[in-house]
């Protein structure tokens, strides 16, 4: 008998698929999924068809909003979100990079005024050749890897 990977189906909720390996735990933390009482199934380093690996998150009774889906693009630009009702996929979409991120990231420039003042950070997305984010305040652009998420 063929051995099959058992990842339990969910009745209502969201499945975030095609998360790059190593990003799943960051997403759990960022969206504070670890602080809910809902049932969560996570798969880390799952094999894919092309021989790479991916992470996957299933959250019961939680539907990812458009704004959350956009923020997800910071961690997993090719992720898909499946919304499940009564064990059926009722909606499936791919996350999209928004034109800007507000209040999500901290500016990598330590001399940026946004660190000291009562304002939300804002970064404009430039996805020409490589993803870069430009600070609304200090106007500096950085690659995604330079950023830390705000607490």
């Amino acid at each position: 008998m063929q051995k099959k990977l058992q990842v339990e189906a969910i009745q209502h909720g969201s499945v975030i698929d095609h998360i790059p390996a190593q990003q799943g735990v960051k997403i759990l933390k960022f969206f504070k999924f670890t602080q809910t009482n809902e049932k969560i199934t996570i798969g880390l380093n799952l094999p894919t068809h092309n021989g790479k690996s991916k992470d996957l998150i299933k959250v019961e009774n939680t539907f990812i909003s458009d704004a959350q889906a956009n923020q997800l693009a910071l961690f997993a630009p090719n992720a898909t979100i499946n919304q499940i009702k009564d064990f059926k996929v009722v909606n499936k979409f791919q996350v999209q990079l928004p034109s800007s991120f507000i209040g999500v990231l901290s500016c990598p420039n330590s001399n940026c005024i946004s660190h000291n003042e009562p304002v939300k950070t804002q970064f404009y997305v430039n996805n020409n050749s490589e993803l870069k984010l430009k600070c609304h305040y200090c106007e500096k652009s950085f690659s995604r890897s330079f950023f830390n998420e705000l607490d």
Partner: peptide
Amino acid sequence: PQEGAARLASEFSDVPVINGGDGAN
């Protein structure tokens, strides 16, 4: 001395702000 100070100031000011230099920006 900090980058972005003038942009931030303009968001809290009801009158025009002219940037005379904000850090290295």
